[in-house]
Nucleic acid binder design. Sequence first.
DNA 1: ACAAGCATTCAAAGCGCTTTGGTGGAGCAA
DNA 2: TTGCTCCACCAAAGCGCTTTGAATGCTTGT
Lengths: 343, 343
Amino acid sequence: MNLKELSALLNLSQTTVSRALNGYPEVSEATRDRVGKAAREHNYIPNTRARGLATGRTHAVGHVIPLSTKHEVVNPVFTDFIAGASEIYARENYDMHLSVVPDTNEESAYRKIASKGSVDGVIVHGPVENDPRIQLLQSIGMPFVVHGRSNAEVDQDYAWVDMNNKRAFERATKCLIDLGHKRIGLLNGLESMDFAIRRRAGYQSALDAAGINSDATLCRSEEMTEDYGYESTMTFCARDVPPTAILASSIIVGIGVRRACSELGLTLGKDLSLIIHDDDLSYFRNGAAASQYTATRSSVRQAGLTCAELLMEQIASPDVPKRHVLMEAELIIGNTTGPAPRS
Amino acid sequence: MNLKELSALLNLSQTTVSRALNGYPEVSEATRDRVGKAAREHNYIPNTRARGLATGRTHAVGHVIPLSTKHEVVNPVFTDFIAGASEIYARENYDMHLSVVPDTNEESAYRKIASKGSVDGVIVHGPVENDPRIQLLQSIGMPFVVHGRSNAEVDQDYAWVDMNNKRAFERATKCLIDLGHKRIGLLNGLESMDFAIRRRAGYQSALDAAGINSDATLCRSEEMTEDYGYESTMTFCARDVPPTAILASSIIVGIGVRRACSELGLTLGKDLSLIIHDDDLSYFRNGAAASQYTATRSSVRQAGLTCAELLMEQIASPDVPKRHVLMEAELIIGNTTGPAPRS
DNA sequence: ACAAGCATTCAAAGCGCTTTGGTGGAGCAA
DNA sequence: TTGCTCCACCAAAGCGCTTTGAATGCTTGT
């Protein structure tokens, strides 16, 4: 069923039917009702492409999610992020386009998306330091919101939604220091990523404040897999002087740490303390009842939702000043932390 | 840059330019080169919507991913599935549209997608028993491929890509039985899902073959979260006569089992045996070096890739008979299984 | 009674592309 | 020369919608 057929059926012009359905005032209430009813009956839904062509707006947004070519890994937080964003898209009747793009040619992917004209705006995932995509999108004039931030020139004004990574890791580190820990391992994400850089800075700053010399061999930076947590812990614990605490950049890494501990017969929270960052993933709820992990928690799903909201705003009124949302992570005390063992 | 501008620039008609770019024969090689070069230079990319309108083909496919309303959970295997499918889409220059839809109104979501005419085909995720979406899509005449299967009427012919769930769980169960286990817990996925029904059947069939009476209180069916694995194991082990082995429907559930064991001081593979189903998720590679879990393994990423291929095929030639791909899971012997403790 | 004003409705253009159905001219045979 | 076939190109229609600009029929005010 298309407009033409529907209007023929109703003995009305396409104009009137279109206006009736789109809520224009110059249509009598009587006809509007009649049209609405007929549309529902024959479940008429306007063809997106045609509408897009006519209006110049697509009612769609794009997400480009990077595929780490090194390990062929897709960050699992995307599911939850997207679930959050989708709530907004559903409400606003927007479609979501997804491309999974090897992180080597993300830039060209954005260029392509822009010139194909298939979306009204995009969400930028996984910003790196001085991310070129920001300038690119600005120069193209495509609305966008960054999930995270990028240390680009100060005067670049763009919308972002970020977690306060520095503060979170600063607090976590301080928390461990307060418990008496001095050798604290950091299992960071890839430090080409902005978020990881900030986390590192937070960690460092807490150590500095406490006058603890940081030990470079205790800091690692990798793709956040389970195996990374496991391997690192095994390596750490094989040292003459192993760390007494570990800070892990994701629950998945934390799971690896736990496996290693279990294998080594170490009890988390006693022999080794662990704080993770918890994105509050739906499949890994760090339960309220017995919080498995001491964690800095910030819901990535909420971040997705907020990103989508900002993007909708920006598409609706491009000239409004760009908004920034900085979410603070909660510090959840679970049972993987305890006083440093004296040795 | 659009067709009109480009053709004006070249002093050619839109027709010729369009044909040159789309590889039609009635264009001289000289002009084709000239056009191609100019297109690249001004990086002209045809507007997707306009092309779609004109051809009736969208060069896009849809994925509707269900959001379990009960727990607000999005299955994490989607990231990997989609990464696989995207390889094909990228190659074929297809776009991917995603909707996350509460599992309560999936059907209407499909209906909407179809009448909006924004995709050439869809992938159906998470089929349940006698899934109504299959009939729906057939009646609409929209090409689709099901990831999984549905026990619908025999004569329904549709394309699917599935793992041999029954066989996998039959083998896993038999493997445990061969090790002397008689009380085997099953932590299944939601048994409204087709895959879970088949897994249950496999489990049952192996027990039957060995003449073991199944114990309904050892079989659970839930959303496959970490916590589910943990809670179930804790409950199981609090029984007077706990099971000696557990079959878990996903690595995430297995992680919960491991956590419970570690807490209870049980050693996996000695005090309790565990076999998981492993979707070979990129973040949870069940490492080759020291395989953490004994598992039935089947790559969900590969499944995504295959689904996408079948869908492309079907879109290209709708009348070709529907194909079915049944993937066999590998049985990986890791170190979470061992002989049943005598007691 | 007539112009003005308003409430409704409509025909047609246009969004950027593909595709149908040509046209003009080169090349060749008779 | 005529008549024919090819080749290379083009003008215009059409995909399904929105939107501009105009038309229609009714009330009003005077």
